[in-house]
Amino acid sequence: MKQIIEISHLNKSFGEIKAVQDLSFSVREGELFAFLGVNGAGKSTTINILCGQLRKDSGTVMIDGADLDKNRNAAKRDLGVVFQNSALDQPLTVRENLRSRAALYGITGKAFEERLRELARLLDFENLLGRTLGKLSGGQRRRIDIARALLHKPKILVLDEPTTGLDPQTRSLLWNVIGDLRRRENLTVFLTTHYMEEAADADTVVILDGGKIVAEGTPLELKNRYSGDFITLYGISEEEVKTLKESFEYRNGGYRIAVPDTAAATELILRNPDVFRDYEIVKGRMDDVFLAVTGKNLTGGAEK
């Protein structure tokens, strides 16, 4: 599959602070790419360089085969950005907002009306077009932010913590829409998020810490590499669990035992078939991976 973003040896410092250090990674066309890190890890700096808001100190950034340094405007046309906080004009209506932004890409008149209709149908805001943006709910506003980012049919959608502060239902709705877009338009999604369950659905995850990549791979690879498996046993007594001679904890009606990997879990089960009557084996979560890699927790928008 084609690499749509290629970043190599990217460096950026602010005075003495090295925000990004020798960063290299690539994003494949059509994939959901998650970029994780605590505040100050270098995520925003990288995104700002990618979007042409910041100049890098060294390294190369290629977007769809074009060097960002040589053709910044072409790169900007390939990117649609949803900022963490809505950056649209609160006193204007949805239509006025989208019309003014579409014109920045040369989309006006009939072409704009057609695109607006498409997006309004896709993101379900046909009934909001005449409403003032400042009077919309958080979820409604987020849909308009996404529509703004998609106005010019970008190849890459950059989502900078797009669901922070949204209720679970709206988050789910937005992810359904984004999933639909990826399928229909082969859209590449570059995501930063504090929600680990969102990162778990990504095709590739990169974890940043102190401006450097500390882990990279698919969620499964990362879980296998940095987090063990968990076996939960149900319908047995504590005495029976103790016979396994493994450390355990009681959680949600079962006894949970941590094992290094699935092979170790299989071995434990085969050695004690009488104890394993009702059980489940699950992989570690992305939270566990993040904790193992960075030594920090990153759960639901809060760094702990």
């Binding site: 979007c51 042409g52 808001q53 910044r72 405007n73 072409a74 900007k76 046309r77 990117l79 950005v81 900022f83 906080n85 950056a87 649209l88 004009d89 932004r101 920045l104 890409y105 703004r148 010019h152």
Partner: peptide, 13 residues
């Protein structure tokens, strides 16, 4: 102040 400028400058203007 309110960050709208970023939204304008991510476009090729």
């Amino acid at each position: 102040v309110n960050g709208t400028l970023r939204d304008l400058t991510v476009s090729p203007v």
